[in-house]
Nucleic acid binder design. Structure first.
Lengths: 361, 361
DNA sequence: ACAGTTTGTCGGCCTTTCCGACAAACCAT
DNA sequence: ATGGTTTGTCGGAAAGGCCGACAAACTGT
């Protein structure tokens, strides 16, 4: 394997191929609202959702003859946290084993609570024009510099230090961190420019800094959704445990191939173990949803006029906000192919006048 | 382990610690005249020489009581080719097992001849002021560019290519190689500056380029001997198989600690296996000399007035030249501590009027 | 010794990037 | 609203580094 650096600081830990990365950095990159089902827990697998995850527009070609189910109860056998070698985009490889309903539901809730704990401090910033284009500098928000970066010695004039940050591949980047200007502000100078160039960052992309338990700094990337850098700021995000929102822009390049979806759906239907790739930032709904959450949602009789609350994350990952809306219609997506599918599309009218959003369940 | 790169190109193969490096690159860095005794061959180990290798001035503190021998016949058990992680200086860790004279002398000559073969093409250049200080460029001697570097496409205007060279640690450096100017000449531009900075090269240091059998390029470093960068060009080099010259400048930092020498000498005297570190560019005489060479030299009755010829290597490692001299005195170095030691210092007056040189044996 | 070739050094100029000034945006009262 | 704080953008300036010109050094005859 190869660590490759050019006009920059880089360091690599190991020399293996597409390896698993630190789950905490993975979560920091995925966004604070992504919660992966822990191994051993049970989820419902939605072939329809998997298909949406795979496609831009091209429909997945499910074999016509096969007896497919709209949702399959599975046990999570393993979750591998990974990152795209080229784009640094994080994704997970989830191994699912179809299960029978009467199987034990054991630790679902407990494990979920445990996963919530000890989440290390992280901070995300969307790159400005100046961060991405200008003379090789990055304006570090004060909060980020003070809580995520290593302590800076303010007695020096000007206060400067070298900051090392490991990316999702284990490559370490070296930045000069300086506190200067009038008024004073935190900046990354030397090293930033080549980071931007090598990661091919543009204004609108986000950068995530995370501090591990042992004090090391990590850096991740969240590419801007394609189809317009400027635009309104609303970006699709994951739900708070029950519901899901889907961004309207999107049209990402291929990450999951339709054949893989078809194969997974078939294996699921025939009760065999299978792997799925899950891209947490793909702006499509979850297709592996906690069994308990699905059952709770199914108990609700959704009908037009109901008020609807959906969580989303603010840009800097520091808080969680809510959108309010009203259910305007309830319709089954594709009654012919997927009879009795709870993969209903609720049409919601948001209080904030924005694009119509499709919300699952 | 760490690959560290800053404003440069770097790449690492493996992640282990002080590992062994490619023997051919090691030899290219050591200089064309260094010949390591192959495993299985026999050498005489000279504690006195080992001590000189270790010290700047500080004498090695041999335990007074111990019965030490001036030279110990040993079998070479293993040779590990290594490089200093900080300075890139090459050295070898030699495992020696004391042997009895009547043991087989087997393959000494054969192995030596074999070692001579398939030495890959390499080229060394001493850095000029312009190479080391000026606007980040390196003037590549035509011979080096044409025989060591990858083929350049001269049909382009100007002819340019990116050259990758792996250093002794497996880190790959990236250089822009261009053929331009009037008159035309080969230059390394982008990437060179940061190589100089990170390797802390100064005018007077040498850089070694080597081409491996499979066509890959390697780069090594030979630091200038300390105590004056400018000065006369004569640098101490190894002998042609029989004799040894010792540079007068030197005073290098510690590489071998006196305790290690004392321990090795004791183990040698008591017939136990031991390790020695050998720095081929330390400007001290060999202290592990082929058994056959020692016996040949011992048969000669050295006396004042004898003519003396000693090989040395030219700066670019392309040729071997000879110094002629006359033996002016024969004296045993330290008759009290080392009775009957052949570690005599012949005093030689060189034909070229230079500093007096001490020559072993 | 001479002519041809090779390469070390220099000044010019272009690019990169570091810097404070300023003001817009943001926040807390 | 208002004042204090934070941070995005800009133009100036310094540094880095690429270039050909020129001449010194070297080579072979």
């Amino acid at each position: 394997m190869i660590t490759f650096v050019d006009s920059a600081a880089g360091e690599r830990e190991r020399g293996d191929g597409p390896r698993c990365l630190d789950p905490q950095l993975w979560h920091a990159c995925a966004g604070g609202m992504v919660q992966m089902p822990p191994p051993g827990s049970r989820v419902y697998y939605f072939p329809q959702g998997h298909a949406e995850h795979a496609q831009g527009q091209a429909a997945v070609d499910f074999p016509p003859g096969a007896r497919l189910q709209a949702l399959v109860l599975c046990r999570v056998a393993a979750v591998r946290f990974m990152a795209d070698p080229d784009t640094d985009e994080v994704f997970a490889k989830i191994r699912l084993v179809p299960a029978r309903p009467q199987d034990a539901d054991a630790n679902d809730a407990i494990a979920a609570a445990a996963a919530q704990e000890d989440k290390p401090a992280s901070f995300a910033k969307t790159l400005t024009q100046s961060d991405a284009n200008n003379g090789g500098g990055f304006s570090v928000p004060r909060y980020c510099a003070e809580t995520i970066f290593p302590r800076l010695d303010y007695s020096a004039d000007p206060p400067v230090q070298t900051v090392l940050a490991k990316d999702v591949h284990g490559v370490v980047w070296k930045f000069r961190h300086i506190y200067r200007g009038t008024p004073r502000r935190h900046l990354l100078t030397t090293g930033w420019s080549s980071f931007v160039n090598q990661k091919k960052l543009v204004a609108g992309d986000s950068i995530v800094f995370m501090r591990t338990e042992n004090g090391d700094l990590c850096v991740g990337i969240r590419r801007a959704k394609k189809g317009g850098i400027g635009g309104p700021e609303l970006l699709g995000e994951e739900d708070g445990g029950n519901n899901k929102m889907m961004g309207a822009r999107g049209k990402a390049r291929v990450r999951v191939r339709p054949e893989e979806v078809a194969e997974a759906a078939n294996l699921a239907a025939s009760g065999q173990p299978f792997d799925v790739l899950y891209y947490p930032r793909a702006s499509t709904p979850e297709f592996c949803v906690r069994a308990a959450a699905v059952r709770a949602a199914m108990r609700t009789q959704w009908c037009p006029g109901m008020r609807f609350k959906m969580a989303f994350e603010t840009e800097d990952s520091s808080r969680i906000s809510w959108f309010m809306g009203t259910v305007s219609a309830v319709q089954v997506a594709d009654p012919i192919r997927w009879p009795n599918s709870p993969w209903r599309l609720l049409q919601v009218t948001w209080d904030e006048p924005d694009l119509l959003q499709n919300v699952k369940r």
